[in-house]
């Protein structure tokens, strides 16, 4: 997701404008002359200015040069970066029906494989790590992790 400054600056201008406009529609509150609308409008306005400045290349001289990494890669290689957030969404969706231990095992196993681990590392890790995390967070610190299909043995 390397964007040019023009694109990222323009995105900020759009975001800032949207924030300022929807902020300005917030109702006033009796007794407060500076109501809830002011702060989003100021921040949104600031974002518009910054976004425009970035799009025009102001301040670019201060940036450290890019460290371009890696050689040529496939077209879809960049999508690999989405694996961690996708796993987190997966956790949100299935942890309650499935239970913490199986969900965690799947997450650890998939992430490990995606990072290039062989099954001799990924499999034991997926089996051990969920129990260790559950022991510390649920057992010792009483974080209410759901049991789902497979309750922890403690």
């Amino acid at each position: 997701m390397k964007l040019s400054d023009r694109v990222s600056g323009a995105l900020l201008v759009v975001l800032g404008a949207a924030a300022a406009i929807s902020g300005s529609r917030l109702p006033a509150v009796p007794g407060q002359d500076v109501g809830p609308a002011v702060f989003p409008m100021v921040v949104g306005g600031g974002l518009v200015l910054c976004g425009a400045a970035i799009a025009l290349g102001i301040g670019h001289a201060f940036e450290a040069p890019d460290e371009e990494e890696g050689g040529p890669r496939g077209q879809w290689y960049g999508l690999r970066a989405l694996v961690p957030p996708a796993l987190l969404v997966f956790y949100v969706l299935v942890v309650e029906p499935l239970g913490f231990l199986p969900t965690a095992a799947i997450i650890v196993g998939v992430a490990s494989a995606a990072l290039g681990a062989g099954w001799r590392l990924a499999l034991p890790l997926a089996l051990v790590a969920p129990f260790a995390v559950h022991a510390v967070f649920a057992k010792l610190l009483r974080v209410p992790l759901p049991d789902g299909l497979l309750a922890a043995p403690w």
């Binding site: 109702p27 509150v29 809830p36 921040v43 974002l47 910054c50 400045a53 301040g59 201060f62 940036e63």
Partner: peptide
């Protein structure tokens, strides 16, 4: 990094802080 981008990031944070009801107006 560029100070302009730093300020933009900071403003983005302020915008995130706007979310919710815990502001002086309770709106």
């Amino acid at each position: 990094s560029s100070p302009v981008k730093a300020i933009a990031s900071m403003l983005l944070g302020l915008l995130v802080a706007c979310i919710g009801i815990e502001n002086p107006a309770g709106t």
